[in-house]
Write a protein that binds this DNA or RNA. Structure first.
Length: 277
DNA sequence: TTAATTTGACCCTT
DNA sequence: AAGGGTCAAATTAA
């Protein structure tokens, strides 16, 4: 069992390393912000998994995984878990005539599970979750809502990171392979949101009561709202992370560190080096 | 037949 | 109590 964990750990680290290299490659391509962000997400997910493995080893007493502290009712546990997921929002503008939500393909496979009319909003909000939720326990969800001001703009709000392997094409190995392949197709810039005219990501730190059980992990509140520097004139980014409890649910899911954990590196800022540009 | 979407009801949070 | 988010049965698509 120990050996298995170690393999997992190494695997995650290797994957993180490979993803970092991919990211480096993408830094030289001026076109695709979204790919980079996704790579970043994947890197963070790898670190998160690796860390959770270590955390488990560090805190778990010799015999078993810490049992859930007190058997929360299923519903409560789900709620708590939901709360702990990081959240960030994109504003997506699509080309005229192509403005269908279905075109907002970000490389993941989503399954719609609800739609709701929102008070004061002209258009309903669509609720999507990862197709692999049941199979792989992937908790990523997103909400898509068309802006009532400008119907070509969609607010896409993501919650939770993908823990699935996202192998849409049944060809596992590298989880980001599909993106790379698409990238080479023509000069259509961003493969993830081909219809983009602009992309707008918001970052907030909705830290609420701010009781970080993660101790010295500081949220990236120091991150100045990176208004700026995206190539085609768009804008402000807002990633909202919710630091709440850390859940030890399924071991495979493990800790979900919020997006803002990039703040672990004191030298890292979102607006530095035109990170998103 | 299976998978995805639709949609009203229900639950949770504010 | 109101509004937002999720569930799940019914419906539609592949």
């Amino acid at each position: 069992m120990e050996e298995w964990e170690q393999k997992c750990l190494i695997n995650e680290l290797l994957q993180g390393r490979e993803l970092a290299m991919q990211l480096q490659a993408h830094l030289n391509l001026p076109s695709c912000n979204e790919t980079r962000e996704l790579l970043l997400q994947q890197i963070q997910a790898s670190y998160d998994k690796a860390l959770s493995l270590l955390h488990y080893k560090a805190t778990g007493t010799s015999d078993t995984i810490d049992p859930p502290p007190q058997s929360l009712p299923v519903r409560d546990a789900a709620t708590v878990q939901r709360k702990s997921l990081p959240r960030w929002t994109h504003q997506v503008r699509v080309g005229p005539g192509t403005a269908m939500e279905g075109n907002l393909d970000d490389g993941f496979s989503w399954r719609k599970y609800g739609q709701k009319d929102i008070l004061g909003a002209k258009y309903p909000r669509g609720y999507y979750r990862c197709t692999h939720r049941n199979v792989q326990g992937c908790l990523a969800t997103k909400q898509v809502q068309r802006s009532d001001g400008d119907p070509t703009i969609f607010d896409v709000s993501y919650r939770g990171r993908h823990t699935c392997s996202n192998n849409n094409q049944e060809q596992g190995t590298s989880t980001i392979e599909p993106y790379q392949q698409q990238q080479h197709i023509g000069n259509q810039t961003c493969p993830l949101f081909p219809n983009y005219l602009s992309l707008n990501i918001k970052v907030e730190n909705d830290v609420g009561d701010g009781n970080y059980e993660t101790g010295n992990l500081s949220p990236t509140s120091t991150c100045p709202n990176p208004t700026g520097v995206m190539n085609n004139g768009s804008t402000s980014v807002a990633i909202e992370s919710e630091f709440t409890e850390i859940i030890q649910a399924a071991p495979t899911v493990g800790l979900e560190f919020p997006f803002g954990n990039a703040g672990l590196d004191p030298n890292f800022t979102f607006d530095d080096n035109g990170f998103f540009s």
